[in-house]
């Protein structure tokens, strides 16, 4: 059993860990602080106490129409996630509950499609999108994001579904549940937590995707990744505004991320580390 740990040791590790953690977190913290500064304040050297103005947030909306890319990000991440779930839930379900000799091979093959470097297919995808008029369209990009995350979604769901013990399904069958009864009363309630965490991770991944979102959009469908990247062109001092836009862009996903720590490990290691 756990031993009593000396207070001195605890104090030491507490101080050490907090210092390291704050250094790692500092860029994010400083961005949030800077977002509450005025543009002149932002370049006046190191200062962690802002004047507390909301001007940058207002400017980002009025001058740059922040709301549009934000809604594009919401649409793309949520839309692509639902689309991916729609296709992967049945697939993961069938592989987890009616496995065949080839199930393992299919899973490995699905995973291997994730290994393809995006840049290798940049040209064909670009040309296909151009020819079908999908460049800078939200539907086209949503489909792209769905495809690149599909293997991860299927894998995550598969590992969750596989943990539902077979005896429970047999018990339901003995208890007189029909196939739909089994799915509705027993499987679905047990699978919901797994589906929810898969959804969460996929939204995070789609929100932060920064290759296709940059290359396949210009203005209409541009999500926050492209919006923020547009700040890189040097056209004057805009750091408070950049900070405000960045804070808004990362805040929702940061909070979701905090809630999905465990699922993140599982999802991104394809179940290899739990």
């Amino acid at each position: 059993m756990a031993r009593a740990v000396s207070t001195r040791r605890t104090v030491f590790f507490t101080v050490a860990a907090w210092i390291v953690a704050l250094i790692i977190f500092f860029p994010i913290l400083y961005t949030i602080i800077t977002s509450f500064k005025s543009e002149t304040e932002a370049i006046q050297g190191f200062n962690i106490i802002p004047s507390g103005t909301f001007q940058s947030y207002i400017d980002v909306q009025t001058q740059k129409d922040y709301f549009k890319p934000f809604m594009n990000s919401v649409f793309l991440s949520v839309g692509s996630t639902f689309l991916a779930l729609l296709i992967s839930v049945p697939a993961a379900w069938s592989m987890a509950f009616s496995p065949t000799k080839r199930t393992k091979d299919i899973l490995m093959w699905m995973l291997s499609t994730k290994m393809m470097p995006a840049v290798a297919v940049l040209m064909p995808i670009y040309l296909i999108f151009r020819d079908f008029g999908l460049l800078d369209s939200r539907i086209g990009l949503m489909f792209m994001l769905m495809m690149i995350n599909l293997p991860i979604v299927i894998w995550m769901l598969y590992t969750y579904f596989r943990e539902i013990p077979g005896e429970i399904l047999e018990a339901a069958r003995m208890d007189g549940a029909s196939m739909w009864g089994e799915i509705w009363y027993v499987l679905t309630p047990m699978a919901v937590p797994g589906i929810a965490s898969t959804m969460l991770l996929n939204i995070i991944l789609a929100w932060n995707e920064a290759f296709w979102t940059l290359r396949l959009t210009t203005t209409d469908a541009a999500p926050l990744t492209a919006f923020i990247a547009s700040f890189s062109s040097p056209q004057g001092l805009f750091w408070a505004k950049l900070s405000a836009a960045s804070t808004l862009a990362i805040a929702p996903i940061l909070i979701m991320g905090w809630f999905s720590q465990k699922q993140l490990v599982r999802g991104l290691t394809f179940g290899a580390v739990k």
Binding site: P27, I28, I228, A229, I253, L254
Partner: peptide, 9 residues
Amino acid sequence: SPFFVMPPV
């Protein structure tokens, strides 16, 4: 936290 920050940011 840094893991959840989008690359451009």
